[in-house]
Write a protein that binds this DNA or RNA. Structure first.
Length: 331
DNA sequence: CATTCGTGAAGACGAAT
DNA sequence: ATTCGATTTCACGAATG
């Protein structure tokens, strides 16, 4: 039977050879270790040889990064394929009949009814066929998302470990069935955004929006969603973590950066910073610092680089200077 | 002329009901 | 799910240098 063979061979290829057991064993075992970042418990995912923190999703050890074998079996109906670039031809050309559905009628190729024994066989086959197809649907989903994460990460200049974290977050979202109703793009962007923040190399929502294919609102919603559903512990971004990048983009001196840092810390001491946008604070501190060190930068230039409006910079940098006056020297 | 400053309407977000 | 308060943004005009 042709179908059976096709299904079987592809099964072998897509499957982890070791995992001959029933279901797709995503064996997650609790370990006694604690996360160095947040102190929460670690979870080891044998299927992927990764140890990640259950809270913040940080990858502790990654002996081998298993992105899985190449999935050749693709559905003919690529309905969610609003794809524009990227997909190598091999992917789309290779699916010929591999993932055909096993018919539901209890008859053979000539329309004759099957014996009850064969009906039983077909029933089992259909079960496996169904499992196989839903599984590959997820894998395809995953693969596309990981590709997007990679693309956006390099566009944003984010290092490898951030991508790893992002993919772990995305996988968790996938496993928890958080995808339905949201686009892959949105979830991928959201995962990356979260990962960047957790790695202390945050990128603003605006920056992510410029490299993402979905608008800011969509992935911002997705982001809030996964944070609450996955219980990710993401602390408010620290304005200081934006400084080096922005200062360098604006061709300002290290002195300015140091001053800006001082201003921000004074602001923290005065609690002027709560509730305000971290990016805005960072932008304002740079502008104020440049002013203090007689390096000329316009509000619009800072606003341009930081994606913060001039109005916000105006409002913030005055507050920053006030706070710095109240707390002149750090004791 | 460029830059900065202030304002009011409008949108988005988080929290609370 | 809606409402409210705070924040940010946009568009504009005025002041400043």
């Amino acid at each position: 039977m042709a179908h059976r063979n096709d299904v079987a061979t592809t099964e072998n290829r897509t499957r982890n050879p070791r995992a001959d057991r029933e279901e797709v064993g995503e064996g997650t075992d609790e370990e006694a270790d604690a996360c160095p970042e947040c102190g929460s418990s670690l979870v080891t995912d044998e299927g992927r040889a990764e140890t990640v923190c259950s809270e913040c999703g940080i990858v502790i050890e990654e002996d081998l990064v298993d992105r899985g074998p190449e999935w050749r079996a693709f559905d003919a109906k690529e309905k969610d394929e609003k794809s524009r670039v990227g997909a190598p031809t091999t992917r789309t050309m290779h699916d010929k009949g591999l993932s055909t559905t096993i018919g539901w009628r209890d008859e053979d190729a000539y329309g004759r009814a099957l014996s009850s024994r064969k009906r039983e066989r077909m029933k089992r086959l259909r079960t496996w066929d169904e499992r196989f197809r839903t599984k590959t649907a997820r894998e395809r989903n995953l693969k596309q998302a990981l590709g997007e994460i990679d693309r956006m990460a390099s566009a944003l200049g984010l290092p490898e470990n951030v991508r790893e974290t992002a993919s772990v977050i995305y996988r968790r979202a996938l496993e928890d069935d958080l995808l339905p109703g949201r686009s892959i793009e949105a979830m991928a962007t959201a995962s990356l955004y979260a990962a960047a923040r957790q790695a202390n190399t945050p990128r603003s929502l605006d920056e992510c929006a410029t490299v993402s294919r979905v608008d800011q609102q969509s992935f911002a919603r997705a982001y809030r969603y996964i944070v609450s559903e996955l219980g990710l512990a993401v602390e408010p971004a620290d304005p200081e973590s934006y400084l080096p990048r922005f200062v360098s983009d604006l061709d300002l001196s290290d002195e300015v950066e140091r001053l800006a840092r001082d201003l921000l810390e004074a602001a923290k001491r005065e609690s002027v910073h709560s509730g305000k946008s971290p990016v805005g604070l960072a932008a304002a501190s740079i502008y104020a610092a440049a002013l203090l060190s007689n390096e000329q930068v316009t509000q619009s230039a800072v606003g341009e680089v930081t994606e913060v409006s001039e109005v916000t910079i105006r409002n913030r940098y005055k507050e920053l200077l006030d706070a710095a006056d109240d707390v002149p020297a750090p004791a």
